[in-house]
Structure formats: structure tokens, C-alpha cells
Design a binder for these strands. Structure first.
Length: 299
DNA sequence: GCCCAGGTATAAA
DNA sequence: TTTATACATGGG
């Protein structure tokens, strides 16, 4: 992977020489559209705007080039390279996951360019509290309203509201953004983070199980939200979040529609996918949600 | 109108 | 221990 500065943008070039650059094969569209993050807009074929780290980034992907604008090489290396998990050898991971697993092979063939993001934990935490019993489309809408109403204005948009800004917004303020029954959960999360009772940065260094325990001390954070936060913002690639789509495709693909518990599914996933269970999960989620049933063709 | 959505807390069995 | 229900809301 080559990194070059060009005016106010950074251009990545993937050389794709076998053995020399097996590093990625990321597809920006697949990655952003896979339901991990919610502050982005599709502008056209392979072209997106993304809000994160207080920046408003335009990303264009065509052929083996990806352009980040505005961006410096320094910013790319410290922010976007980790954010898009570009250091990991996904070609190797995909091959490993697909070996002896025809379902993963199909999912990888369908959308093998999905990477796991490393988002800012606070935004990710609130986003997935909002995700409870909610549609992705509406989750995006609610988050957008929150940012406009309570986030700090920037040159061309709004930052994600800080814990203190959500506390100041109060229950009524949060309700006015359409958060519904989740508003009280968001407030408890904001208070625990603001007071230091919950250290989000600390979660990254902790063992997965301990980090999950800490997260679930927040009122309204359960098994699923904790898993998503650990996977999509803390780099814990071994967790396997289960939602309706994942449950559906796992039962269909691996359990022949038996009545199997989520605990059973998780145990199976850990055994089958090991330390990359989270990557497998995200691929399966995207596959199940966006690929038409008849094209999936799972026996 | 009806059903559903990247769930969770709570009560009841 | 597992299973049922309320929760707020709007997109399809």
C-alpha cells in the first residue's frame, strides 16, 4: 500500500502484488454501508462523506486508488489508517475464514471488502444504544438530529455531542430528537463517562470479558450493545454480536433452522472463527441484510 | 393501519 | 433458569 500526499488530499494505491501487498482489499462502500457507523452520506459510485474525529472527510474509491480529502499523511496514519483497520491482512483473514466454510466463502465473494472500523468509543456507544429495536435508516436520522441540536458546530457540520452536552440536553432534549425509551439509557451512559466511573479508553486494553462487564454496568447496555462497542470501537475482534439478521442467517446456514439459543450460536462462532469471529460476524450480517435470498443460495 | 427494526429491563412462570 | 411483555418511533 502506497501513501502519497497530493495537494490537500492523501491518495492510497494498492499494488496487489501477491506476497508483497496482500494488506487489504478494503471496499469503502461495503464497509460504511455494513451498519457499523452512522454518520456518513453516499455521494455517488464509490464516493462518500464521513464525519469522525471532528472532521468531515470525502472519500473516493476507484480501481486500486482511494482518495481522502482533506487529509495529510500524518492524519491518515494516526486517524484513518486505524479507523479503517488498514494494517490488518484481510486477504489472509478472509482466506482463513473461508477455508472449510462454504457460507463464509460465499459471503466473502459477495462482500469481502468489509473491514471492521475502529470508531471513537463514545460515539459508538451512544450510536448502539440508539440502535436498540430500531432501523439503520432511523438510527442515522436520530444521530443526525442529536448532532445538529447538541453537537459543537464545525466549519461544515457538527461534532458528535460530548457526554456533558448530552447531560445538558437533558431527558426532554434527547426525547425531542426521537430517541424514545433510549433517552434514559443515554443519560446514564453520559453520566458514567463524564464522572469517570466508566473509562472508555480503558476498555481497549482490558480483556474482552472484563471490558464487557464494565460496559454492562450502564443502565440500558446489554449483551448486544456491549459486543458492538467492543468490536466497532475497541479492537476486540473476537466478540460475536447477534441480532435478528445474524441469528436468521446462522440458523439458516449452520443449524438447518433448528431452535438454537444465542449462547449456542456464539460458542459455535468462537470455535469456527476463533479470534476473528467479529470479522466473520460483520460479513455475515452484511451478507444477510443486503444480499437477496435467491442469490444467497444457502443449502 | 400493520409490521418491523444491529435490544433491554422487568416480571412471571 | 427460560419465556413473555412493555418500551417510543417512523420507514416501508
Amino acid at each position: 500500500m502506497q501513501i502519497e500526499q497530493h495537494n490537500n488530499s492523501v491518495i492510497l494505491t494498492f499494488t496487489n502484488s501477491p506476497g508483497r501487498d496482500s494488506s487489504t482489499g478494503i471496499n469503502i462502500g461495503e464497509t460504511l454501508e455494513s451498519g457499523q457507523c452512522f454518520r456518513f452520506q453516499a455521494l455517488g459510485e464509490g464516493c462518500y462523506k464521513l464525519q469522525a474525529f471532528g472532521r468531515n472527510l470525502t472519500i473516493r474509491q476507484a480501481w486500486e486508488h482511494i482518495t481522502f480529502e482533506p487529509c495529510t499523511v500524518e492524519e491518515f496514519k494516526t486517524l484513518w489508517q486505524p479507523y479503517f483497520d488498514l494494517e490488518r491482512d484481510y486477504a489472509h483473514v478472509m482466506a482463513q475464514l473461508s477455508a472449510n466454510d462454504p457460507v463464509m466463502a460465499k459471503a466473502a465473494a459477495y462482500a469481502g471488502g468489509v473491514h471492521i472500523l475502529r470508531q471513537e468509543p463514545w460515539e459508538c456507544l451512544i450510536s448502539f444504544i440508539i440502535s436498540q429495536n430500531n432501523h439503520i435508516k432511523r438510527i442515522k436520522g436520530i444521530i443526525d438530529k442529536l448532532c445538529r441540536a447538541y453537537g459543537t458546530p464545525t466549519q461544515d457540520g457538527f461534532d458528535f455531542p460530548t457526554p456533558q452536552q448530552l447531560i445538558d440536553a437533558g431527558l426532554d432534549g434527547l426525547l425531542s430528537c426521537g430517541t424514545g425509551f433510549r433517552a434514559k439509557y443515554m443519560l446514564d451512559a453520559a453520566q458514567k463517562v463524564q464522572s469517570g466511573a466508566l473509562s472508555l479508553e480503558g476498555l481497549k486494553q482490558m480483556p474482552t470479558a472484563l471490558a464487557k462487564e464494565k460496559l454492562m454496568e450502564v443502565y440500558g447496555i446489554g449483551n448486544k450493545v456491549a459486543d458492538c462497542v467492543l468490536l466497532f470501537s475497541c479492537g476486540h475482534m473476537d466478540v460475536f454480536p447477534i441480532d435478528v439478521w445474524v441469528r436468521r442467517i446462522m440458523l439458516q446456514a449452520y443449524f438447518h433452522d433448528q431452535t438454537v439459543t444465542d449462547t449456542h450460536i456464539k460458542a459455535f462462532a468462537q470455535k469456527q472463527f476463533g479470534q476473528h469471529a467479529g470479522i466473520a460476524q460483520q460479513l455475515l450480517f452484511h451478507y444477510a441484510r443486503t444480499c437477496k435470498d435467491e442469490e444467497r443460495n444457502i443449502c
